[in-house]
Design a protein around this nucleic acid. Structure first.
Lengths: 203, 203
DNA sequence: AGCGTAATCTACCGCGCGGTAGATATAATC
DNA sequence: GATTATATCTACCGCGCGGTAGATTACGCT
């Protein structure tokens, strides 16, 4: 029966290169925020995930809002592997393939999709620190879609439709991982990208 | 130059019947939560909106979580005007009309739609007090849709598709009121509810 | 091995949080 | 008008929040 009830955590102070630590903080913050939303995550939560103190987090990021900005930049960096020029997507087949490929890609990056879905809705509130970011991003995304869907009778309407479905599907999938996102996408896309005036469309 | 720099708020203590006050608290809480999410609203915010103290709010509701439950019950109460039996919706025309009518109805109740959209995503987190509520609600909604869409080749897939689009569209509309929700809905529904084997479908 | 930089730490600040306890005052009833 | 029930109030509690100040210590460099 040793009397040693002490030393529950033999912590050793470990020092990381600034860029390494910064990256770790951003990654852990993204993980926590994607799970519970920015409003539900504290400086201490992030510090604990990195096994440091909150003042050390603030040494690398001046404030929580700055850290959130870094998280958004991190998401952008991770979620844009390839972006072909819009001119190459200006017909139904190319557009369909592009969208499907992106859905396929996102289906393998659950956490990033969840981060986007959660923050986007939280940021509807104009006082949310990510409000402007998402307003701009949403606008430019729908603008791109409108350009891609120029062959549709009502491109703006179609762009809003596909964006609404896309985000709705991702949210559904984030809430329930058992949903086969690609199957639901194909169900939608088979109608959305069909050309009803074509010779074989009504077989 | 009157020296009276006092009495900025000539407050009079007003007493309301419990059911009236309870209702007021729930309505104001719903308004605030729909705007910023449950995580961003405090007891004090709600009390101020009712022009009482937070301890008075807690006199009517034992805790914030109980108040949230009341808010959810309030939403259910407001958002279910008529619900025809499923058997009457078992064909494309009836289903299409039912869905369209509900979208039309929701387009006139922005705040309730926003409340649902915001809480639903916040509650993806299992530790959120509304998590179980939305898990159940989402499941039963998709189950109902599956029954209504039994005439589709893949009813479950179709149910998830229409639910994803619906919620995505509502979220898009909540974030940007300039979106014509009904027009985007019709764009989607005209394909979703069309019967490609019909004689006039490909005119 | 010794030095200097700076990443990390401890300690603290003011504030607002959800919630509790008990005093006060409003309004219905007799 | 006096009595009573209770809605509302004031005051307080412990805690965790984001953020600051300054001491400490790990590590690269010579």
């Amino acid at each position: 029966m040793q009397a040693a009830t002490e030393a529950p955590a033999p912590r050793v102070q470990r020092r990381l290169a600034p860029e390494v630590r910064r990256r770790q903080i951003v990654v852990e913050a993204a993980r926590l925020v994607s799970a519970a939303g920015f409003n539900a995550v504290s400086l201490n939560d992030i510090a604990e995930a990195c096994e440091i103190r909150k003042s050390s987090v603030l040494h690398h990021f001046p404030s929580m809002v700055d850290l959130l900005a870094a998280v958004l930049a991190y998401r952008d960096e991770m979620a844009a592997p390839v972006q072909p020029p819009l001119e190459e997507l200006a017909d139904p087949a190319a557009a369909s393939a592009f969208f499907r490929g992106t859905v396929e890609h996102n289906a393998q990056h659950r956490e990033l999709v969840r981060l986007y879905a959660v923050l986007r809705v939280e940021a509807i509130d104009p006082s949310h620190p990510a409000h402007a970011y998402f307003r701009n991003r949403e606008q430019s995304t729908i603008d791109s879609f409108t350009a891609i869907l120029a062959w549709k009778p009502a491109p703006i309407l179609a762009a809003r439709e596909i964006y609404a479905f896309w985000t709705g599907l991702e949210t559904l999938w984030v809430a329930d991982p058992s949903v086969d996102m690609l199957a639901v996408w194909d169900s939608f896309a088979s109608r959305f990208f069909s050309v009803p005036s074509g010779p074989s469309a009504c077989a």
